[in-house]
């Protein structure tokens, strides 16, 4: 681990300035990912700006939306009555992530900014364009069973590991950001980016920009929701692939509205809007789900070790939709 400075401002503006004016500085909240990365030398910030003293932990149940503070703990959000009643999909996704101990440390803002778990990114002796641009992608010809099937580039095939983000992208959340140039809102789908030629950049945040909250608009998805996470053990593992599904059904079991997103398949949480459209107006049957799954997988491409995702993807979509539709 490198040596670093540590500051703990109590004012948001001070925190933002501390990071904005120092390219080697970074925010730290729960630290559940950053500290690991620092121990391994993957990230070597010269200054840590601890934001845990900032007043960003509230969950506000506003009319029409929930505003969840960036420092609200994953476990707090998952257990919050308003969240469970108004956005049960978000609670399901949060509880599918990590372990109870980690959810008690990890924050909402940190969760969305966690870095890929690609083994090549984590090992400083291996090539990785995300960690060290220009060194190549170790996973491209390597052991890539956890890797992307959508939206990758020849520079990077890593996937975003967050479960919570898959639910948030499905729910049309908006990220509230404060930075040196003021405040702005980012639609959740635009927070994370595809690797392209700059895989070192995970998000569209500008230097010094701090996530302050995430807004989740109310919708009809309070009952028929499911987060299906497929992993190699029953708990405490990153997804091989996951699906967030939300349905709004009429009394005849016809789908009035649908939301669908996948995790573990791309450099960002992967919203499946075409598949959503394929669901709307159709009966909530396995056949409908199968057709939507086929639409969802269009354009998917596998590597040597992750071809199973081409089958696991549609299967998991069907399973998630079946479970969502039958949720009572």
């Amino acid at each position: 681990m490198n040596q670093f400075q540590y500051v703990r401002p109590t004012k948001q503006q001070a925190a933002i300035e501390a990071v904005a004016k120092d390219a080697t500085a970074t925010f730290i909240a729960g630290g559940t990912n950053l500290v690991d990365l620092m121990k391994r030398g993957v990230m070597t910030p010269q200054k840590l700006v601890d934001i845990n003293r900032l007043p960003l932990t509230r969950i506000d149940a506003d009319p029409g939306k929930l505003r969840i503070g960036a420092l609200a703990l994953n476990s707090t959000v998952a257990d919050d009555k308003q969240v469970r009643a108004r956005q049960p999909l978000l609670a399901l996704a949060l509880n599918a992530g990590a372990s109870a101990q980690l959810r008690n440390m990890a924050t909402v803002g940190g969760n969305m900014l966690q870095r890929t778990r690609c083994s090549y990114f984590y090992d400083t002796t291996m090539p990785c364009n995300k960690r060290e641009p220009g060194t190549g992608c170790g996973a491209l010809e390597g052991i890539n069973r956890m890797h992307a099937i959508f939206g990758f580039s020849d520079k990077c095939i890593a996937v975003h590991p967050s479960d919570m983000s898959v639910a948030l992208v499905a729910l049309d959340a908006t990220v509230q950001v404060s930075g040196p140039k003021g405040n702005r809102s980012i639609p959740f789908a635009e927070l994370h980016r595809l690797p392209g030629d700059m895989p070192q950049k995970d998000t569209t945040l500008e230097p010094g920009e701090l996530i302050t909250a995430v807004d989740v608009p109310d919708g009809p998805f309070t009952k028929h929701v499911h987060y299906q996470k497929v992993r190699e053990r029953a708990s405490y593992a990153f997804a091989l692939l996951s699906v967030a599904a939300a349905l709004d059904l009429d009394s005849n079991n016809i789908i009035k509205a649908a939301r669908l997103a996948m995790g573990g398949v791309a450099h960002k949480p992967w919203r499946l809007t075409a598949a959503e459209q394929a669901l709307v107006g159709k009966p909530a049957t396995e056949e409908t789900f199968r057709q939507a799954a086929t639409v969802a997988m269009q354009g998917a491409k596998a590597f040597k070790h992750n071809a199973y995702k081409l089958q696991l993807g549609p299967n998991t979509i069907i399973q998630a939709l079946k479970t969502a539709a039958s949720a009572a």
Binding site: S119, D123, M126, G138, E141, I143, R233, A234, S235, F238
Partner: peptide, 29 residues
Amino acid sequence: LMEHARIDDRFGRYVTKDFADYHVPVHAD
């Protein structure tokens, strides 16, 4: 069901280096 230490033969190095990559059963298993 899960234990598998994998080496990337190009480098001769394990790509499973911790308990995030090398799975042992948890209680739920």
